[in-house]
């Protein structure tokens, strides 16, 4: 391997931009804690920017157009599962949705099936904790008896990789929101739960 490699000629960041599109966000608004609140749609118009994600766009709307707009982001890097919402009819993570992949009119709604906090913010945490308590989706072991000074029990490397594959669920709730059965039957556990259960069982 030589110490010098040809640099890429162009990157996404360096791509020259054409005239910015005007994006129109149609956002479903409601604050269930406010007796006067009636569900309705507000429309916000902003200029698209290069590399714009819905994280960037929604923050811009809140900073410049409506300080009361409620939504949830934490990691803004696609790993924490906070920002699931329905984007043009499809439940997905807002932080890793690039506006360039969307039409100029963008419909945003909160995930169904979860308790609404306000606007685009829903209580997925409460649902996930409830599911975990109900199904006991943790490793049931007698680990207090494990001598932490001793070498760990070996595990087949392929098995470890397979468990991680199941363990990657970030509990964003998109699968539950998209599931007809989960929406009709309150006690249906949904796909997130099967992943958590399988992980716990594989380890044990």
């Amino acid at each position: 391997m030589s110490d010098t490699a040809p640099a890429p000629s162009a990157t996404a960041a360096a791509t020259a931009a054409g005239p910015a599109r005007k994006l129109r966000f149609h956002v479903l608004r409601h604050d269930p804690h406010d007796p006067a609140s009636v569900p309705h749609t507000d429309v916000f118009e902003i200029d698209e920017a290069a590399g714009m994600t819905l994280f960037i766009a929604l923050n811009e709307i809140r900073e410049t157009l409506d300080a009361s707009l409620a939504f949830d982001f934490v990691c803004r890097a696609g790993i924490c599962g906070s920002c699931g919402m329905v984007i043009n009819g499809r439940p997905t993570l807002a932080c890793r949705t690039l506006t360039k992949d969307l039409p100029t009119d963008i419909m945003l709604a909160p995930l169904p099936a979860f308790e609404l906090i306000a606007d685009l913010s829903v209580n997925t945490g409460k649902w996930m904790r409830g599911m975990s308590e109900r199904l006991e989706t943790w490793v049931h072991s007698l680990d207090e008896d494990v001598d932490l000074r001793r070498i760990e029990a070996p595990m087949d490397p392929d098995l470890a990789d397979r468990i991680y594959e199941l363990d990657r669920c970030i509990e964003c709730g998109c699968c539950v929101a998209a599931c007809g059965t989960a929406r009709m039957r309150e006690d249906f556990v949904g796909a997130a739960s099967s992943s958590a259960t399988t992980t716990a069982c594989s380890v044990a």
Binding site: D3, M155, D156, D161, A200
Partner: peptide, 27 residues
């Protein structure tokens, strides 16, 4: 001790595979 406790709690740590493997060191 913390790593080993977490293994007992189900963290699927990546595991060693015996034998030869190819790695990149200093390019």
């Amino acid at each position: 001790k913390a790593v080993r406790e977490l293994a007992a709690w189900g963290v699927p740590w990546s595991r060693v595979r015996k034998g030869d493997r190819e790695v990149i060191i200093n390019g």
